[in-house]
Structures are given as C-alpha cells and as structure tokens.
C-alpha cells in the first residue's frame, strides 16, 4: 500500500504560487506516495508570531493542530513554515500543557520538503531532468533552525543536465523576514539587491530555494532590476523531466 502524506502547502503557495504545491504533489506521487490535501488548512500563524501577536498566532496554530492532528506525515514546501510548527508551537503553548504536548507530537511529523525526500523517503534521485545553470539560496530558517544544508544539494546533484553554482557569500539572508520586508522596506530592498548581485556573479539563469517567501523577495528584486533570471522552488525543478 502506498504511504500516505498530507500536504501543508502554506498560505503563500496557495494564494500566490500554486504551481509550487502542484509540483511538490507531482514529485511525491511519482515516488509512490498517496498525497492528500486537507482542505481546511490555511496558515501556520508565523506572520502573527513574528510580529509579536502571540494571542493571534495561538489561534491560528490551534486551527493548524486541528486540521493536521490526524495526519501521519505532513510535507511543507517551506523551511520557515516548517520551523514555525516544529520549533515555535511548543513555546507558544508553554502555558497550556495539553495543547503543548499535542503540538510536540505533531511537530515530529512535520517535514520540510527536501529533508522529507532525503531523510524520510530516503530518496536522492527523483529522476528529474533540468537543463540549466542554477544557484541555490539557503532560506535562513531551513538553514539555521532546521539545519538543512545538504539535502537540497544532494537532490540537485542528481538532476540530469543541471549545473549548480554556489553563491558567494553562500549563507546570507535575502532580506525578506516577513513584515520586516515592509516595515523596513528600504533596508529589506537593499538586502535583496545584495542577494541579486551575488546571484548575477554566479552566472546562473535560475535561482532555486526551499522557501516561496525568499523566492518572492528575490524574484521581486530581480524583476525590478529588469533581469531575466528566474526563481523556482526546488519542487518545480524536481518535477521537471
């Protein structure tokens, strides 16, 4: 029997980048997973949490718990949203022991997409072909809160026709940061331009990342600068053949 996974596509993918969610589903199905999409899902609550609205974040987190509580494995196309559930829910419910233990038990079943493939599914070659020179942007939460460094690179290394060129500096923030991107718009924009320059230096035609929000920030800056470099989520690269 095919193993079952549930998608948490995140609100940003649902509303702005549905193709990322579809690509993720396609890759998972190709690997033989039975993919479900719980229809009542919305958001993980991170925007409220990161802006200091803990009460509101708790409300959204509770909804998330209710929607996903009975799912076996939950796969997320975002390091940042995964980290919100995995690291911050427990803290958010520090004063509610019962909800907290539900959150902790759920957290163990929530996986960022690339690390789900390499660590849970045990797959490094999904049989993709993508003829292009790409660079990879490490989203900060995937990198530093989840410790994801090698998983996406191992997956990219097995994509036929793909050449990966690393960024220099490699692990610098793109400047998105949720509401930071609009509260400190000029600063965030300057950080995005720094990232864009590093991307140009690699000569890559495509920027790949695990986080749709980083990609929105980076694509926004590239597009504003009139550059034809495109951004893609890892799932989109892995889905192509």
């Amino acid at each position: 029997m095919a193993r079952r996974v549930s998608l948490f596509v995140t609100c940003i993918v649902d509303q702005l980048f549905p193709q990322i969610g579809m690509a993720m589903a396609e890759v998972l199905e190709r690997l033989g997973f039975a993919v479900a999409f719980p229809q009542a899902q919305t958001c993980c609550g991170q925007p409220a949490f990161n802006s200091g609205y803990r009460q509101e974040a708790r409300q959204v987190a509770r909804h998330f718990l209710e929607v996903f509580e009975n799912c076996e494995s939950i796969v997320v196309p975002s390091g940042s949203c995964t980290s919100m559930v995995v690291h911050h829910y427990a803290e958010l419910f520090a004063d509610e022991p019962r909800t907290r233990s539900r959150a902790v038990s759920l957290a163990a079943r929530v996986h960022e997409f690339s690390s789900f493939l390499t660590e849970v599914a045990g797959v490094e070659d999904v049989g993709a072909r993508f003829e292009d020179v790409v660079t990879f942007h490490d989203g900060c939460h995937a990198l530093r809160e989840l410790g994801i460094r090698s998983a996406p690179r191992r997956l990219l290394a097995n994509v036929r026709g793909l050449e990966l060129r690393e960024l220099e500096p490699r692990e610098e923030c793109c400047g998105f940061g949720g509401t930071f991107s609009v509260k400190f718009g000029e600063l965030s924009g300057a950080m995005a331009r720094g990232k864009a320059e590093a991307i140009i230096q690699t000569g890559a035609k495509t920027v790949v990342s695990l986080d749709p929000s980083c990609l929105m920030q980076i694509q926004g800056a590239l597009s504003r600068a009139g550059l034809s470099i495109r951004t893609l989520h890892l799932a989109e690269v892995l889905a192509s053949r």
Partner: peptide
C-alpha cells in the same frame, strides 16, 4: 528596534 531584523539567526 526589535523589529529591525529579518530573524535570519546568523
């Protein structure tokens, strides 16, 4: 001030 951060964790 506490908001002037992308929370990148570096």
């Amino acid at each position: 001030l506490p908001f002037a951060s992308s929370l990148c964790g570096a």
